[in-house]
Amino acid sequence: MDIIIRNYEGTREEILSDVDKGSFSRKIEENQTYELDFDVTQTERNKIAFDLVQHESSILFDGQEFIIKQMSSNASGSSVTKSITGAHIYTTMQDGYQYNTLTGRRSISQLLSHVFGSENLGFTWEVIDSEEKFSTVEQENFGGDNYLKLVQEIIEDYDATMLVDNKHLSFYPRGDYGKKINEPIRYKYNTDSVDFDIDTLNLKTQIRGFGKQDDDDNYFFDPIIYTSPEAEKWGIRIQDPIEDDRYTVAGNMKKRLKKELNDKPDVSGSVSLKFNSDINIFDWVPFIYEPINLNTYIQVVGITDYPFLPNEPLEVTLSNTKKTMTSILANLKKKGVI
């Protein structure tokens, strides 16, 4: 795979050769991070491209565009090395601003339409799957901020996962994206560096759902109670009910309850795999943890890979928790991107 460097003005573009391939990493985290890091030293062969390596220049790699936001230079004699962090182009949403605000119950699509309006900086978006899988949320004075902050607010309010393809944004209900694979991760067996947090504080085994009422305050169907099979192990632990007037069919509400019930321990953490793997971001992998007899699927929500080191194991972040992930803005500020 070639690494292309393009100047800020978009008038010059070169293949960037002699990159330190051992330093080249790509990091993706759900709703948080998508960046490249690498070092490059000036050589006779790359001196033209090397001059293009500046703040706000673009790096084109594996079909995606990244913007150089952090760069340090180190000179040793006549040798100059630049250390680069390139943030994915979707972070340039921060350069747009929606001054207008709105109030009232809104769907995720209505809010996205409001954010981007006509001055969309070239961004496009789509909501994947039916709107029914996203709750409508009461908003108060939504707007008055940059696009990136507003999109992060949408992600949190609607419990969404955002996938990016350059400036095209796709929004899925969190947990609905990704395929199940049969390559298990067994705690301390096929992992090297391990850091896990297993939390039963929010473990629940029963939930009730209320659907739409007619003009006489009669429900279209009797309230549904769903009890997880996990109740045999953990007992009855009641989760806050769901009240949603979009539901007029009992079967649809039952599906929603099964999805919403937090009937597994919250598991999150990171591992460095001992083996090469084809695991991808958002895949669901079997996770086995013998001390509490846990054997469940858990989603890959972060990956750091080394594209030019095929034998270097992946560093993988896993989570099955329904907790909102760390704010994209806090993460970017910490990294000095904004």
Rank of each mutant, 00 (worst) to 15 (best):
W125T: 02
N120L: 04
D145P: 10
D157I: 00
G144C: 04
D159F: 10
Y158M: 00
E140S: 13
G104H: 13
N146Q: 05
E140W: 07
Y158K: 00
Q139N: 14
N146S: 02
G143S: 09
I155K: 05
L102T: 13
N120H: 10
Y158R: 00
V115N: 00
L148I: 02
N120E: 13
R106T: 04
E140F: 10
S113W: 10
E131I: 03
T124E: 15
G117C: 07
L111A: 03
G104D: 12
R105P: 03
L163P: 02
L163S: 07
Q139Y: 08
D145I: 02
F116D: 05
E140P: 03
F142H: 12
R105W: 12
M162Q: 09
Q110P: 06
Y147V: 01
F116C: 03
T136Q: 15
L102M: 15
Q110I: 00
E132C: 02
Y158V: 00
Q152F: 13
F116W: 10
N141G: 08
G117H: 14
E119V: 12
N100L: 09
T101E: 14
D159A: 08
E153M: 04
F142V: 02
I128C: 05
L112M: 12
E119H: 12
Y158C: 00
G144A: 04
S113P: 07
D157S: 06
S118F: 12
D129A: 05
T161Y: 07
N120M: 06
E126W: 07
D129W: 12
L163Q: 12
S107I: 01
V151I: 08
Q110D: 13
G122I: 01
L148E: 08
G143N: 12
R105N: 15
A160M: 09
N141Y: 14
E131Y: 14
R105L: 06
T103D: 11
E126D: 11
R105E: 14
L150A: 01
N141I: 09
F123R: 00
S118Y: 14
Y147A: 01
T103I: 01
E138P: 07
S109F: 07
S113L: 11
V127A: 00
F123H: 01
E156S: 09
S130F: 15
E119D: 15
I108E: 06
L121I: 02
A160P: 12
T103A: 01
D145G: 09
S107P: 06
E132G: 07
V151D: 10
L112H: 02
G122K: 06
Q139S: 11
N146G: 03
F134H: 06
I128Q: 11
M162H: 09
T101V: 08
N100F: 10
T101C: 07
L102N: 07
H114K: 01
